[in-house]
């Protein structure tokens, strides 16, 4: 149990998550610009703008720089014949075991950004839970989906 799962998600996930981070920063910056305008219009205290800029800076530090790489390093998975083993989480590290017999169906999904990076998110559903592995390589996700669904079919069981 001590040893971590072996597989990692795609390196390109890093770039993708950084882009998500930049988008967030962009939104904060837009809000800050809006605030700056109101400061000039209605003589609001100017430190509001500083707060906005501060948040943006923090976001650059965390969501663009720190969080994606930590998250990527933490994310590991293993899919064997009998079970799916996941490890993820920034502050709370979660290790999840899903027996293959419990898997009901597998989906892959791909948004526009993911498609651009040839990445794909796979979600594995049981009767009670949904487990996602984000940002896998497109082909890897496809291969995984097929193998899980065929393994799950073999390991038929009630409920």
């Amino acid at each position: 149990m001590e040893q971590q799962p072996t597989q990692r998600i795609s390196q390109r996930a890093l770039t993708l998550w950084r882009i998500y981070g930049w988008i967030q920063v962009g939104i904060i910056l837009l809000l800050t610009i809006g605030l700056t305008v109101t400061v000039f219009l209605w003589d609001w205290p100017w430190w509001i703008v500083l707060i906005g800029l501060g948040i943006a800076l923090l976001e650059v530090l965390s969501f663009v720089w720190l969080v994606p790489s930590l998250r990527w390093k933490r994310w590991r998975y293993d899919v064997t014949e009998t079970e799916i083993d996941l490890q993820y989480g920034l502050f709370i590290v979660t290790r999840t075991l899903v027996p293959m017999v419990r898997v009901q169906h597998v989906d892959t999904e791909q948004g526009p950004l993911l498609r651009k990076f040839r990445l794909s998110t796979i979600s594995i559903s049981t009767a009670a839970t949904v487990h996602k592995i984000p940002a896998l390589d497109e082909q890897e996700a496809e291969r995984l989906r097929q193998s899980i669904s065929s393994l799950a079919r073999v390991a038929e069981d009630d409920v």
Binding site: F91, I92, V93, R95, T96, T126, T129
Partner: peptide, 16 residues
Amino acid sequence: KYRIQASYEKQTYFQK
């Protein structure tokens, strides 16, 4: 055991 759908082990930095 055969009714459990999934199991999670969770640990924060401080708990580690």
